[in-house]
Nucleic acid binder design. Structure first.
Lengths: 335, 335
DNA sequence: TTGAAAGCGCTAACAG
DNA sequence: CTGTTAGCGCTTTCAA
């Protein structure tokens, strides 16, 4: 019982149906190139034996795997699920398998980026929320592994991104429009090894948005803390308990918005009357907690990435595509 | 630029280092069976060419893929992420790749279960929260595809499960101990095609727990609704607005608990003083919203599944293992 | 329309 | 310790 039933190969089918293996292969891949009568005979033999082509053998001969890989920080980034969901749903009708490479450290990321283009067991690669270095990018293109980056673009590779700066600006505009004049920003600073920092871009855009309305964002109203629920809540507490608390808070992520709301309620503030809170991301749970937030269409980022990828697998010799997804404010009940 | 650089094969390495391909293969797989001096020479050649064995070719020759598959309902079951996380973290040190097969319909599930054992491109399979039929189970074992089921066990296949009935009982005990005497149950009934229904088991255990304390669970206090936030909230509203509302609610899942809390707050009830709410699952977000709930150790279910799987891949001829994970009540602030 | 045969790139006896 | 050789199971020219 170690291995089970004898698995039929194309040779068995050939023997049973009295033709050569090439013909079997043909009815599998180019049925119209086989005379109807023999095709029927072959199909019957296939059914009788319960034959199914072995994927590995096929991949080996074909030099392609029908498999695309996704490198993703499974553990740190809560938004990845929705992106992955977009990838999965776009991929399944395309008859590609989805291989997940989770990165829990920057070393793992580099490890995958080093080996994946070489082992040749992927037709394409999607990298979610992780930054690939120059050397890695060139290696990717040199070895012809089609890649699309989500969130952290690179000039030589396809990418789907958003305009974080613009997102921040939109929030400023929105809150201003709601009548707020004293608005705080909270965000985390937990991306030491990354160059571009979306949180800071959001902050920058936010600041600019205020400026456009003739307002400055005082330094005591911006709080950048290391990512951790406890830290966040502590700082939010400080922020809200001060003599002249803000009337609104822009949290750089939905999770932080939730932390803020939690602490605000503990203090006894009413949301959104005493304090308006707006997040960023539009995670699934934002809907559950009725959080007003800016949606960056996470699911869509995944499906768009797949489209681009399949496209450039078919047409490898085209310049990298960079698509920027729109942002939109989802107004719920917290701001 | 269509394909990029010429990819070196084992033959190139052999030629450059002046030995046969078998020797190359040996330094790759059994380094100690090669004389040090030639090994060094080979390694140098490998480095010079930047040679990396092609995974497909290796898999084809070896008849194994170093890949395990996970069939999971990506879209409907919110708990799957944590299970998957457990799988991923247990798998990555084991040097196995993780292939995800998402099921959005029962047909897809059957489709995968039909083809996966035959295409032979997986060394093992984990099925999360989906029920495999008898015929599928026997096909799996006949074809020797090692499998472990999470949540829905089957006698012929490995499984990791929990005792939903006992979980319900524990909740009854807990709430009773807290002094509650009028306790409602809310759950969803959204698994038409499945035989075993965890929600009903939880309800059964809960009912039994009350019975053990000499109490009956009146029918007007159990609410089974179709899964959807709106529906749930509507029913919860009815429940709470009645003349003699319950002092506590056991929600069969964390999501439902959140829906209940939301509506309760809208009505103006204080949690947990006016109404205690306890959930089931212990999703990540339960911690964020400080939900008291029964933890079924989702992450662990995944890692345990991997352990069992790797074990039975190594030792195929052993009887199926069925492990039941413990349950524990996580007391936070809602009950 | 079909068959023979040469790969695809690697592993693993079996000799030497 | 190393080379020869026969697979692994399929696809795809090239002839017939």
């Amino acid at each position: 019982m170690t291995s089970g039933k004898k698995v039929p190969t194309i040779y068995d089918v050939a023997q049973l149906s009295g033709v050569s293996i090439s013909t079997i292969s043909r009815v599998l891949n180019n049925p119209d190139k086989v005379r109807l009568s023999t095709r029927i005979r072959v199909v019957e033999a296939i059914d009788e034996l319960g034959f199914v082509p072995k994927a590995e053998a096929r991949a080996h001969a074909l030099q392609q795997t029908n498999r695309i890989g996704v490198i993703t920080p499974f553990f740190t980034a809560p938004a990845f699920v929705q992106r992955l969901r977009g990838v999965a749903s776009a991929l399944s009708p395309a008859n590609y398998e989805l291989v997940i490479f989770t990165i829990d450290s920057i070393e793992r990321l580099h490890g995958y980026l080093a080996s994946l283009p070489l082992t040749r067991n992927l037709d394409g690669l999607i990298v979610i929320s992780a930054q690939v270095e120059q050397s890695e990018a060139t290696r990717l293109v040199e070895h012809g592994l089609q890649t699309v980056l989500i969130e952290y673009p690179h000039p030589q590779l396809n990418s789907v991104e958003i305009n974080d700066f613009e997102g921040g600006r939109m929030v400023a505009e929105y809150l201003l429009h709601k009548g707020h004049r004293r608005i705080a920003f909270v965000g985390d600073t937990d991306m030491p090894e990354f160059g571009i920092d979306p949180i800071n871009l959001r902050l920058g855009g936010f600041r600019q948005g205020l400026l456009d309305a003739g307002m400055r964002l005082p330094q005591e109203l911006v709080h950048l803390v290391r990512y951790s629920q406890g830290q966040m809540q502590y700082r939010a507490g400080e922020l809200l308990r001060q003599a002249k608390p803000p009337t609104a808070i822009f949290a750089a992520t939905d999770f932080q918005a939730m932390a803020v709301i939690k602490i605000a309620k503990q203090i006894g503030m009413k949301i959104p009357d005493d304090l308006a809170v707006i997040g960023f991301d539009d995670l699934d749970l934002a809907d559950y907690v009725d959080l007003t937030t800016v949606s960056q269409h996470l699911d869509e980022s995944g499906s768009v990435a797949v489209e681009i990828l399949l496209d450039s697998i078919e047409e490898p010799s085209q310049p990298p595509q960079h698509v920027t997804l729109p942002l939109s404010i989802i107004e719920r009940t917290t701001a």
